[in-house]
Computed example of a mutant assay.
Amino acid sequence: MSVVDLKALARDVARDRRAKAHAAHAQLAHQACQLLVGFLTPHAGKITAGYMPIQTEIDPLPAMTMLATRGPVCVPVVERKAAPLRFDLWTPDCKMMRGSYGANVPARSDPVVPQIIIVPLLAFNRDGHRLGYGGGFYDRTSAQLRDTNSAVMAIGLAYSGQEMRDFPVSPLDAPLDAIVTETEVMTF
């Protein structure tokens, strides 16, 4: 079985696990957001990319709202398949519209380059790897941003129930610098 096939199987398992974690613990997302904001306190003022949650992703909006009082916050915009993401400035009261893949994006594009990226995921492991949806958007984006600024941080945000020990990792999978759940902050 190829790595691609193994990742597809792992994604199916991870989607189910995330859905169960979301159903059982969505009210704990606020705790994860508080841990995330605390973790990012030393980085106040840096441009931070959040995301607009889709499906059963943990909701980062409470953290993004708090972070917006300390510095610029932006959200990803998919411009096309197999390309890095663009990031547009976001504020808690900005007008949003439906973007690609069902995620909302700011109605007015004001592109910025983030220094910190909060990354959604299907699963994570204790080695700092994430299993995403398979489009490679965050992997390409992290690699591109780190080529020009090695200090760019990528932080996974997830429910603790999304932890999986075994899923394939390829050389193109960009590692995370930290993972924040409702119970802990893991750094790598």
Rank of each mutant, 00 (worst) to 15 (best):
H30E: 10
Q31K: 10
Q31A: 14
C33L: 03
C33T: 03
Q34H: 11
Q34I: 04
L35W: 05
L35Q: 04
L35M: 01
F39Y: 15
T41D: 14
A44N: 08
A44V: 11
A44R: 09
G45F: 13
K46N: 11
K46T: 10
I47W: 09
I47E: 09
I47V: 15
I47S: 12
T48K: 06
A49M: 08
A49Y: 04
A49H: 05
G50E: 06
I54Y: 00
I54M: 02
E57P: 11
I58L: 11
P60S: 06
P60F: 05
P60W: 08
P60K: 01
P60I: 04
L61K: 12
A63P: 07
M64C: 03
T65D: 05
L67V: 09
R70Y: 10
R70S: 13
P72V: 03
C74P: 08
V78Y: 06
E79N: 13
R80C: 12
K81N: 10
K81H: 13
K81E: 14
A82G: 04
P84L: 07
T91Y: 04
P92I: 00
C94D: 09
C94H: 12
S100W: 04
G102D: 03
A103N: 02
R108I: 15
D110T: 14
V112P: 09
V113F: 04
V113W: 05
V113M: 12
V113K: 14
Q115R: 15
I116W: 10
I118F: 10
V119R: 00
P120V: 06
L122K: 07
R130Y: 09
R130I: 11
G135D: 03
G135F: 00
G136F: 00
G136L: 02
F137M: 01
Y138T: 00
D139M: 01
S142F: 15
S142W: 05
Q144K: 15
L145D: 03
D147Q: 15
D147C: 12
T148Q: 15
T148M: 14
N149H: 13
A151R: 13
M153N: 01
M153P: 01
M153F: 02
M153T: 00
M153Q: 07
G156M: 10
Q162N: 01
R165F: 10
R165A: 14
D166R: 12
D166G: 06
